[in-house]
Write a protein that binds this DNA or RNA. Sequence first.
DNA 1: CGGAAAGTTGAGTGGGATCAAGCCGCGTGG
DNA 2: CCACGCGGCTTGATCCCACTCAACTTTCCG
Lengths: 250, 250
Amino acid sequence: MAISLAPRRNACGSCALSSECIAGALQGDELRELEDAVHQGMPVHSGATLFHQGETFKDLAIIRTGTVKTFAFDRDGREHLIGFHLPGDFIGLSAIDEQRYPSSAVALDTVSLCRVPFHAIARLAAKSASLQARLFRLMSRDIARITQLTCHSSAEERLAGFLIGMADRMASRGYSSCRWQLTMSRMDLANFLRLTPETLSRLFRRFKAQGLVTVEGRDVEVRERERLQVIAFTQACNGHEAPQARRDAA
Amino acid sequence: MAISLAPRRNACGSCALSSECIAGALQGDELRELEDAVHQGMPVHSGATLFHQGETFKDLAIIRTGTVKTFAFDRDGREHLIGFHLPGDFIGLSAIDEQRYPSSAVALDTVSLCRVPFHAIARLAAKSASLQARLFRLMSRDIARITQLTCHSSAEERLAGFLIGMADRMASRGYSSCRWQLTMSRMDLANFLRLTPETLSRLFRRFKAQGLVTVEGRDVEVRERERLQVIAFTQACNGHEAPQARRDAA
DNA sequence: CGGAAAGTTGAGTGGGATCAAGCCGCGTGG
DNA sequence: CCACGCGGCTTGATCCCACTCAACTTTCCG
């Protein structure tokens, strides 16, 4: 995973990880304009807050390395986990409309990222149709992905869905799709899956007993992807294998 | 609610309902280009399918009048309800990335809508920064809204959240915020809220007994918005009243 | 009027939450 | 070095909310 850190060569530095890097859509002057707008910043360490819920929206953040969690507090002060974000992911897309971050973002390990003022991205996108298209696709994907999550109803489905999703996301970034390290605590993961840590622990034990996964602390190995997938997608939602779809409106 | 149906005067016909109408961002030649791209179509009646899960993505649909439900089938053939869409809403934003509709869309009552080929919208957005900005905001809002939904954990919270959300959406369209008609069946609503129809029925009874709402068949009246809001937002997520947010990264 | 679908009500069950210990790894200080 | 304490994680016992199954009522449409 050689990642260029040279800011002049690659504005966001994450192209090696993500074919969706916005810099890939630009050339010449526009690429230079983007590079000027990007704040590279030093890596931040675990626990650092990238932005706060309610704070005025300014930058989109793009992760180069590390993991970030986003979450929101309820009126009782409890934390609701919204998502985990890996290298190449954009953070802050949900803040564009209200001009406020609807959630907080915190680094789960050492994180390096670029911040790009959204107005700069928007200005560039107005000039570059391909950048605009990438942004539309990026946001569209977010909508589709989050929607899918809501379909997982039982605890088993949600955990299996998380594991499959994680496997795919690791794979798409060039890592092993079956073996990796969780960067989040059991509490955070349970919170994300809308479970208690106790239930999550018991679930992991069951999955292990059934030979679906190996779990040692934060080391995870997916052993039977197929069966996990069946558990996760008793509901499918991602209609790729959808029926011979054709318009037959009444 | 006077709604002009004259296509030449107002390309999408929903401006009266939604300040977000994309036509509002355009002028002159570009407005005319949009008008040429829009398919007005005849109103479709209840039960008509607007598009199928898995079908190749072509058009964004914008509702002018009526209600639409979107849903996806799982492998066992069960229907998972994704959302209800009111006049002014865009349908299909989640299909941009994969170029396939991830869900089906069906009219719940008589629906008139415009279809606009997405490539036409994208081409226009590349010319008009204000149209581009509207689309970004629209998609951002979708992301934020769906994210919020996932926070509602108990059955009570989810129903209260639905009622509050419905009240706000009706209000923003110029209807009464406390009295309206449900256009979906109990089954659909239960499905959307991830409940059984039985549980939903019991919940409505409890809310009625507590004086929170009046429910007669499909007629709903919100009587105590405040208390409903407390129930719905025991978790808040929309961090408007967030603490004195300031960057304090470690 | 009759049949079917939608909706409501009741009794019983089960999955996940809650409450309460216990275990383990790790840093700190005696 | 070990004792101690603390937080992350696991395990066990119990409870409760929402689901299931079943019966009944109402509404819709022929």
